[in-house]
Design a protein around this nucleic acid. Sequence first.
RNA 1: GCCGUUGUAGCUCAGUGGUAGAGCACUUCCUUGGUAAGGAAGAGGUCGUGAGUUCAAUUCUCACCAACGGCUCCA
Length: 647
Amino acid sequence: MSEIKITLPDGSIRQYPKGTTGMQIAQSISEGLARVVLAAKVNGEVWDLSREIHHDADFQLFKWDDKEGKSTFWHSSAHLMAEALEAIYPGIKLGIGPPIENGFYYDIDFGLYNFSTDDFDKVEKKMIELAKTNSEYIRKPISKKEAIAYFTEKQDPYKIDLLKDLEDGKITFYTQGNFTDLCKGPHIPHTGHIKAVKLTATAGAYWRGDEKQKQLTRVYAITFPKKSELDEYLVLLEEAKKRDHRKLGKELELFTFSNKVGQGLPLWLPKGADLRGRLQNFLMQKQKEFGYEQVISPHIGHKQLYITSGHYEKYGADSFQPIHTPAEGEEFLLKPMNCPHHCEIYKSKPHSYKELPIRYAEFGTVYRYEQSGELHGLTRVRGFTQDDAHIFCRPDQVREEFNNVIDIVLYIFKTLKFDNFIAQVSLRDKSDRSKYIGSAENWERAENDIIEATKAKGLPTVVEYGEAAFYGPKLDFMVKDALGRSWQLGTIQVDYNLPERFELEYIGSDNKAHRPVMLHRAPFGSMERFVAVLLEHTAGRFPLWLTPEQYILLPISDKFQEYSEKVFHILKKYDIRGSIDARSEKTGRKIRDAEVQKIPFMLIAGEKEMAEGTVSVRQHGGEDLGAMKVEDFVQLIQKTVIKELQN
RNA sequence: GCCGUUGUAGCUCAGUGGUAGAGCACUUCCUUGGUAAGGAAGAGGUCGUGAGUUCAAUUCUCACCAACGGCUCCA
């Protein structure tokens, strides 16, 4: 019998008989490893451990701790759940059941059955019961014809639909216990690895993600190889919920919503408005350094403006309906975008090539009629303020301008410690070009501009086709919230189209009219969404420079009220923000309340402090910095703020 | 917009076919207290809105509205 060479990740090479399985290799390494190993990677492809290896291969084993191990585990769990569901609800039709970031789901057509959260319990029990049988996941290649015959017999239209797109000869079935599914695998060795199961949610999901297709019931679940890991996961979920910006926004009195005002229309409370204003000033100052000029445009604009820009044709039907003037019968739209206004500002006078780039910035509030089901706290609303700006430049300036905008975004992200972002390059749909306006040539140029700039900056990048705006490609900065959902914050877009639609011009050195290029950009994205994500990242403990209340003075008793006010006025002179807790409560109580409010510094003022002109400083979280002169506290704040903003 | 869940005091949540309760917050009084909740009293709700069933609905049914979890969408 011939031998094959297996190269392990550490570079060592071992000889095995041809046809050795991944499991056998694991066993040859150690029995303990063989008990916990879930899948293998053979020449870059994740395989079942039971598959025979017939050629020399680079080889790696995956356990639960590995990303590949988890996804294989959850993929197999999805099959187990399908088996359990079929046992309880005979005749249900199955869609797809993939692993996801935290667990897995299966899309099911329950037919006439009602399935709700009340049924989770019995499904979980059934899954555990089936898992205990230690059923192996058995792989079987099958011809397309046989596969279709199988699912025709089973009357499962969704699997047949899937099979239509698969290539004959590459189709496999997997069977465990009494359940067989169309699946390319791989799977874990047997169901016995699955020890803890939790169904987490149900949701409607259109078949193949298409609104026009039938909506199936998506059942979300997660499984673990140990019961204790499930418990840990549930605790983690609870912790994440505490960081939810909707909860923190209410607790810290930053913003609220009112049904009487309307869905998705946030109301900023004084503290939230203060924080937001501070963020805006922070960005405005940076933008000044980069040569931006502030402009202001009104909240409504003539409908024709948006017809010219192309927005009306694309989004008019899904927007707030036009406002009609009584006398003239004119139509105005609530501003959904700032760019057309800025184009008109550009056109207010002729421009020379020497003036470019011109950078118009505006914290412009825009209104979009988002679908009701899509509204979500502050991250998806119907009225929001973009930290918008439009750069009008010559084609030869695009690259540099683009790089400068990236620098602004990175400066902001760095200052606020957003280190887990992904730069998403959003390009046209490869197959459907009809969704976009503008010439192919302009698109090519714009797409290349973005790809090149991103490469030059060495950003962590992912390319997504079909995610571009209808007028141009984008570079979006994606950041995750407390529950792991990705949100688009900063965005930069190259646009050759609007300048044409608005017939923008500048006079070149050749004394002829030329078309400028436009960059749309918003480093925060929207103030609403940015504050939401910032809240979740900081868990409400904002940096000192940004937080609405930097300190709170806690007089030990009424006797020190006057002294506290004196301190308060000194601090105010230095622009240090805070208040006095003048309630007739004990100090312990005042500290507790200040802790709950996440105020960075608590200044205790009593007999000793009044005599010495000091305050006793306690930091949020409990650290006691001891007594210090008021001037020293001023210094402490100022130095901390400078340090936070240094970058 | 679609599927599912939920809607009781400012907040977090009990509860019932006979028009409601707790804790915290709030108000007043007592207390003047040194690093995470001092004490007492009081006030506060058309039980999301509308309709139906019923002698009687906060409770059961339906519709609508909103929030939440997803799907689709996101200039």
